[in-house]
Design a protein around this nucleic acid. Structure first.
Lengths: 120, 120
DNA sequence: ATGAACTATGAACCTTGGTTCATAGCAAGC
DNA sequence: GCTTGCTATGAACCAAGGTTCATAGTTCAT
């Protein structure tokens, strides 16, 4: 499979595929080269990239993912994932607080709008 | 009040205060100058900055906040805040999905770990 | 067999939200 | 009055996560 197909199947720009490869987020075993030096991607890379995309969208950084993928110990992987779940729960609490804050703004409970109006 | 005090009361570095000012996130009416050209901050700027800090931490960008603060129409402000609440709700749904994904990882339902192991 | 589309490369560029630096003028305590 | 510390400025720098560019070789459809 060449870059174009991987790009279409993962909805990641080719430039991003190359960027991830440069960052070593894509294990070398997923990519070989043909006689023209064109990249040949393994079938499995599609699912792998979809997972990475998901994990990135959760707030994992590329560095974290590289560590997660390359981490030799399954226990370490589990620990990382558990950490992330805890982090997500914190985020959820924060978002709840945020909604309250914004709803207070809407209800006029905060003096934010008053202070904004001062400016005009 | 000078920069040092604002910095201490908002827990924002002075460099950040100047950065926000440069970006026009701080309305000019909150800052004047003394005879030495030192900034003199209005008392109200403390609460204002605390609000901005909160809003930034929710995912508002500086550009959004500038617009929100300077928006002349109260209706527009309300619309913006409502949009943000909707956005936060989307985020919450996404985080829920993320937790499910990660819990599946932990439970070994995904084949992510298997594929990770392939690399070693 | 020719032009459009695909692939390769390294380097430069981009955005967001800031921080650091070099240089210089005030300030405040002892 | 001297030293330490606060303030000022513009410009450069930073990290993250990519994207764009210039240049060059390859492939595919007609």
């Amino acid at each position: 499979m060449r870059a174009n197909e991987v790009s279409k199947r993962t909805a990641l720009p080719i430039s991003t595929l190359r960027f991830y490869e440069r960052k070593q987020l894509i294990p070398v075993t997923f990519i070989s080269r043909d006689e023209n030096n064109y990249r040949v991607y393994d079938e499995e890379v599609v699912q792998y990239l979809q997972d990475m995309k998901m994990l990135l969208s959760l707030g994992f950084t590329i560095e974290e993912l590289i560590f997660l993928v390359n981490e030799s110990s399954p226990e370490e992987k589990l620990a990382r994932v558990k950490d992330k779940i805890a982090y997500i729960q914190e985020l959820e609490a924060k978002l709840e607080a945020s909604k309250t804050f914004l709803n207070d703004l809407l209800a006029g409970k905060a003096n934010f709008q008053t202070r904004c109006r001062i400016e005009h």
